[in-house]
């Protein structure tokens, strides 16, 4: 049994049929590839269309006479549902647009609130800083006042110094007058011995 040639007997059948299928298709395409056949088909299509049209017309006519709905009537009702669906779609799109607009507005609002909070915080910081500065300014003011007082005191001293200066000038003048007087006395003293010698 081991030496026996076991195979799928249908494999060659498949290859053979594939070959024939291809040949038959080539033959079919060649045989139908004719202008006349297309014209004949057009005739058949027109006749068939006329038949369908007449059949549908008669069907509508009979259904109308015996007052029963046709598929066309059902289709017309179904169309209303489709139209309602379309309106819903339009509404849905508008809702989306609104959602998008709201999302955008919310985002902008958040941004604005954030900016406002930052501004507020900055304002608070500035306020604290100003407060500190105000205290500093007050301190400086007190010091300035003190200085002014000291300066005022200094002004009194200055007047005394001025008076002293004036007195000193007067003293200098007296000193110079005394020096002149001294000179005059010396000169007088030098003149007296010359007269005695004669």
């Amino acid at each position: 049994m081991g030496e026996e040639y076991t195979s799928n007997p249908y494999e060659s059948f498949r290859v053979f049929s594939e070959m024939w299928e291809k040949r038959l298709n080539d033959l079919l395409i060649k045989s139908i590839d004719q202008r006349e056949l297309t014209m004949l088909t057009q005739l058949g299509v027109t006749a068939h269309s006329r038949y369908i049209e007449r059949m549908k017309r008669n069907q509508e006519l009979i259904a109308n006479m015996i007052n029963i709905p046709t598929k066309k009537d059902v289709a017309n009702v179904a169309k209303l549902t489709v139209q309602a669906e379309e309106k819903l779609d339009i509404l849905q799109q508008q809702i989306w647009e609104l959602q998008d607009a709201f999302t955008l507005a919310f985002r902008e609002q958040n941004k604005l609130v954030k900016e406002f909070m930052e501004f507020n915080q900055n304002l608070q910081t500035e306020w604290d800083k100003s407060k500190k500065e105000l205290i500093e300014v007050k301190k400086i003011n007190t010091e300035v006042k003190k200085l002014r007082q000291e300066l005022a005191d200094y002004q009194g001293t200055k007047t005394i110094v001025e008076e002293l200066k004036t007195e000193l000038t007067q003293l200098k003048e007296i000193k110079s007058e005394v020096a002149q007087f001294k000179e005059m006395v010396r000169m007088e003293n030098q003149k007296k011995p010359l007269v005695t010698a004669e």
Partner: peptide, 19 residues
């Protein structure tokens, strides 16, 4: 020939589609 017939209008299925 069928491609040509469709392209030049010799074979026209409009009436059948309408029907």
């Amino acid at each position: 020939q069928w491609v040509n017939a469709i392209q030049d209008g010799t074979l026209n299925l409009d009436r059948m589609i309408n029907a």
